[in-house]
């Protein structure tokens, strides 16, 4: 019984924490993010398994996590509201070469982040060449160049 409860509680807690952390966290894996991810994994593992290292326990934890995950994706298909709550929505941060500063500040981004995405995806050199820059639901910045 407790392996299911442990897995469900950890899933809920991690979901809440990553919602607080926002879209940007762990979206672009830097070296430090990678280390952070490993530490989170290590810390979670103990709480998930407890002191029971049996195969049954490990399998039940995995089964529970996958069941919750598939359950949520089915729920997202049925309900627009749930989908938006879990995945969020896209946000435009550059419109016709002009940065929407308030939004950028709320999203905890700086101009360099946008220009980096613009260079790497479109080979864009200046802000004026950007038609739209959008923070996608997964936290990546996609850039649409002017014609």
């Amino acid at each position: 019984m407790d392996s299911v409860l442990r897995a469900a509680a950890m899933y809920a807690a991690l979901m809440l924490l990553f919602k607080i952390a926002g879209r940007r966290s762990l979206a672009e894996i830097t070296t430090f993010d990678f280390v952070l991810l490993m530490i989170i994994g290590e810390a979670t593992q103990q709480a998930l398994l407890g002191d029971d290292f049996s195969m049954t326990n490990a399998l039940m934890v995995i089964v529970t996590l996958i069941a919750i995950d598939v359950g949520f994706s089915l729920l997202k298909l049925r309900s627009q509201w749930v989908s938006r709550l879990i995945d969020g929505g896209p946000t435009i941060i550059v419109e016709d070469g002009k940065i929407l500063r308030g939004r950028m500040r709320h999203a905890r981004l700086i101009e360099a982040d946008i220009m980096e995405a613009a260079r790497s995806s479109q080979g864009i050199e200046t802000l004026e060449q950007i038609k739209f820059a959008i923070i996608e639901r997964n936290g990546k910045i996609s850039v649409i160049a002017k014609e």
């Binding site: 919602k19 607080i20 938006r84 969020g88 929505g89 946000t91 435009i92 419109e95 959008i134």
Partner: peptide, 25 residues
Amino acid sequence: QDDHRSRQFPVREDMVFQHKVWRFE
């Protein structure tokens, strides 16, 4: 005002909801 207005193109935004998300964060 411009920051709060929801755009419909190229993506459909909901800035009221997005501001709630940012406040939650």
